[in-house]
Amino acid sequence: MMRVARSVLALLFAVAVLYGMQHTRPLYSDITSPIVASGGMNRRVEASAFALSLDRVRVARVLNVETFGKSKTYTSSGVWLVVEGEAEAKFETLGLTSGEWLSGSGVRYVLTDRVPATIEMMPGDVYQPGLPRHVLLMFEVPEDAVAGGTVVVARTKLLPLDDEIRIATNVSGRDIEPELTIRRNHKGPSWTVLPQR
């Protein structure tokens, strides 16, 4: 009798321990999460493989894209975020293919895939060590996701435990321009954001 009771107790104990372990252990996404380097606007933030600085975030209701004489207008149910900055590889040639806008409430927005590849956005570019280059990131987000947003950049989304840079932006979400034009240039800087200011 005693022995049966002891077995039942041991079984219950094992169940309790397993249940506790299942619910206290960190999530898979936390175990494999990237190694984050954070910073603010207008300064160079260093990760182990690359560095990034962001100079400017502009918000607009409509986005025009001019590539070699052709112009296309992109409307949105939210707003467009146009982010400019500079990125540099530190030790080896690499690509930065993952860019995200993390809203203040933790919702993720990825780089827009509506704008054609002729505009040199960050993911298509190659970064050479020692040669910093300008980056352009464009996001489409609802208006309430603008204020308190963070830009998150990584080499790829698929590599666990890789570097990731997070830059907290300083946009209030109140200064929304009616429209912005991204013009692809033949010479000089690859693009211009109009109207200039």
């Binding site: 992109y74 949105s76 149910s77 939210g78 919702v107 993720r108 927005y109 990825v110 827009t112 895939d113 509506r114 489409e140 987000v141 609802p142 996701a145």
Partner: peptide, 12 residues
């Protein structure tokens, strides 16, 4: 866009 749809962003 009258074009192929890509990602649908949250709450849009």
């Amino acid at each position: 866009d009258k074009y192929l749809a890509g990602y649908f962003n949250p709450n849009m």
